[in-house]
Design a protein around this nucleic acid. Sequence first.
DNA 1: CTTGACCTTCCAGCGACTGGAAGCCTTATG
DNA 2: CATAAGGCTTCCAGTCGCTGGAAGGTCAAG
Lengths: 136, 136
Amino acid sequence: MNIGEVSEQAGLPAKTIRYYEEIGLIAPARDVNGYRDFSEGDLHSLAFLGRARALGFSIEDCRMLMSLYRDSSRESAEVKRIAAGHLARIEKKIADLAEMRDTLAHLVRECAGDNRPDCPILKSLAAGARPDRDGL
Amino acid sequence: MNIGEVSEQAGLPAKTIRYYEEIGLIAPARDVNGYRDFSEGDLHSLAFLGRARALGFSIEDCRMLMSLYRDSSRESAEVKRIAAGHLARIEKKIADLAEMRDTLAHLVRECAGDNRPDCPILKSLAAGARPDRDGL
DNA sequence: CTTGACCTTCCAGCGACTGGAAGCCTTATG
DNA sequence: CATAAGGCTTCCAGTCGCTGGAAGGTCAAG
């Protein structure tokens, strides 16, 4: 399979697939003409990567997960550890964003949004208390 | 004021302050020795920036907000537009993350996380349906 | 034979910093 | 006066995960 077809089937841009090869996530064979020649296994790996990335796993997480996937004797504990760590990061991010949303939503409600210059949003940015940025 | 003191007071790393000058968000004066010499106004601007950034506004949003803030005759509508747009992006992000969280939480719950090789997380990554990535 | 779609590599850029090197300036101490 | 520590300066490179574009090779159809 050429990269175009694989791109289509895996739902990943060709650029991304080349990038994944560059960083060693996949290693497709090469045709005599220099074109990448993807096997079913490569396609499978790319689909795996696509799903893991869609769940927000980092590239390094993906590398780990792929190698765990290929190691049929691995223990599920390690996979769970990675997934749980990622889940915790996602939950932290959601909480941070929810805080931003609440503050912003409040300000947007307060602001008349008309042609008068008085604006509570700017007032708050100029003088308001700044929320903790720890760990953002 | 030297950069160290401003950094302390504004709660921003010195590196970040230099970066903000580089991209034209602030323009502190210079001492004869070449050191930056920050005014109260500069400090105020940096505090403003810190708060806006903590609310997740992009640098370009911040640039707009600062110029609107300085323009005492501006209409609040434009500020509200920027804030509301940002709020919408935050809400979209939260929704996306919540979807990831739900899928992941489900998988993590399913996974025994013990020394057996059977792992529903990897199974799902290998074969499961991939959630839409549109607009992520 | 030419067109156009596909493939290749390489280099640069995104956002918003962050780290580090090399070197100047200031202040306190011996 | 020398020296050492700390703060300041600039500049370059790296982060993450791609993405865009240029320059050029390859292939199938008309």
